[in-house]
Computed example of a mutant assay.
Amino acid sequence: MNALDLLLTRSSQPKLQAPAPAGDVLENIKQAALRAPDHASLKPWEFVVCTGEGLQRLGQILQDSAIAEGKEQESIDRALQLPHRAPMVIVAITRYTEHPKVPQFEQTQSTACAVQAMQMAAVAQGFQGIWRTGSYAQSAYVKSAFGLAEQDEIVGFLYLGTSCLKAMPKPKIDSAKYFTTWS
């Protein structure tokens, strides 16, 4: 698959199974993240790769968050299993660095670009993924469990693995609805 086909056929795959990326494939995914646009080379990212027991640890953080935030029992029970929807979850974090020319939102956007790059690198190597956010990405409890400062952010959880489903073709989108040309 060439780069253009990769970008034009991108879609999220929510049903993932083992195997997860490993070895050189995983290293390529990591290196793709580190090539994201990064004004002033601040490298505002931190990525926590969860597999095996790490998925259980992440699930425990999510469950403890659900308890601390007074969620219903169904949500508390479900939280422990959320990371197990894939054999790998990469937690994408922006660790904000104060800089006179690079505001916080730009550093967060840099991390978001890194997540997109990781997903595309995974797909290019035969794996699939889905980028999830939700209330746990915004949870003060979860942020604290990862040792984040108040201004830091969890940009999302990138679930990676092997797709259980065949990707369905998506219809072409009319670009004229979203692009205006000034000539």
Results as ranks from 00 to 15, higher is better:
Ile67Gly: 03
Arg85Cys: 09
Gly70Ile: 05
Glu69Ser: 11
Ser65Leu: 01
Pro83Leu: 05
Gln73Ala: 13
Glu72Lys: 15
Val89Leu: 01
Glu72Ile: 08
Ala86Glu: 02
Val89His: 06
Ala86Ile: 09
Arg78Pro: 06
Gln63Cys: 03
Val89Gln: 00
Arg78Thr: 05
Asp77Met: 08
Lys71Arg: 15
His84Arg: 14
Arg85Leu: 08
Glu74Arg: 12
Gln73Lys: 12
Leu80Trp: 06
Asp64Ile: 00
Glu74Met: 10
Ile67Tyr: 01
Glu72Val: 15
Gln81Val: 09
Ala68Asp: 11
Lys71Gln: 15
Ala68Glu: 12
Ala66Trp: 02
Ser65Glu: 05
Gln73Val: 06
Gln81His: 13
Ile90Asn: 01
Glu74Leu: 10
Ile76Asn: 10
Arg85Gln: 09
Pro83His: 06
Arg78Phe: 12
Gln81Ala: 14
Ala68Pro: 06
Glu74Asn: 13
Lys71Cys: 15
Leu80Arg: 11
Arg85Glu: 12
Ser75Gly: 12
Glu72Arg: 14
Glu72Gly: 13
Gln63Lys: 01
Ile76Lys: 11
Gly70Gln: 05
Val91Tyr: 00
Glu69Gly: 11
Ile76Thr: 10
Glu74Val: 10
Gln81Asn: 10
Leu80Thr: 06
Ala92Ser: 02
Arg78Ile: 07
Ile67Val: 12
Leu80Glu: 07
Gly70Lys: 10
Ile76Leu: 10
Arg85His: 12
Gln73Ser: 13
Ile67Pro: 03
Ala68Trp: 04
Ile90Trp: 02
Asp77Asn: 13
Leu82Glu: 13
His84Trp: 13
Leu82His: 11
Ala79Lys: 05
Gly70Phe: 04
Ile76Cys: 11
Leu82Ser: 13
His84Phe: 15
Leu80Cys: 04
Ser65Asn: 01
Ala92Tyr: 01
Ala86Gly: 09
Pro83Gly: 06
Ala79Pro: 09
Gln81Gly: 11
Ala68Gly: 08
Arg85Gly: 06
Ile90Ser: 02
Leu82Gly: 10
Ser75Met: 14
Pro87Cys: 06
Pro83Thr: 04
Asp77Trp: 03
Gly70Thr: 05
Ile67Gln: 08
Ile76Met: 09
Ala68Ser: 07
Ala92His: 01
Ser65Asp: 02
Ser65Val: 02
Glu74Ala: 15
Ala79Tyr: 06
